[in-house]
Amino acid sequence: MRKVNLAEAIVSLVLITVAGMFLVVSTSIPHSSLADPLGPTAFPQAVFWMIIVLCMCLTVIPGIWQLVSTRSTRRKPREETARKRPAYRRFMESGDAPALLTAILLVLYLLVWRVLGFALTSLIFIWSLSLILSPKDQRSALKSLLVAVFVTAIIYVAFVHGFRVDLPQFALFG
């Protein structure tokens, strides 16, 4: 049976759960009074069921099988490595840390976008993320700030004046 990794398991469980919820919601959609043989729920329900069944076959059943068959054999080496270095250090040294930090910063960026406005938020975002992602030997707060100011100004002018997009302003001015 095929091996299932953690990301596959998470994606499948999310899809099964949300598809299940949508399936329940779809039962409350009123059927049309028109002579519509399929109605508004046939297509969505068919798709939700297919997602659930495929995810079960692709991930959940092989995953359970994998858990049952390899439970005892894979624990020891992990525990040994865990004792050698703290978990946070292992995480920071892994490739996942910059991706997670970028994702967190991305959420924060959008949360304050409407409050501080596009220009100020983008400037801070570009500056801070470029500092976080830059290798230690190339890290320069001033250089990052200059790039942030320059890029934010160009994007702002291009979108607001060139493409006539009404970007969010600083809330105190708006």
Binding site: L133, V147, I155
Partner: peptide, 9 residues
Amino acid sequence: HFLTPILIV
């Protein structure tokens, strides 16, 4: 490290 934040914005 410059391209990533610029692309996101």
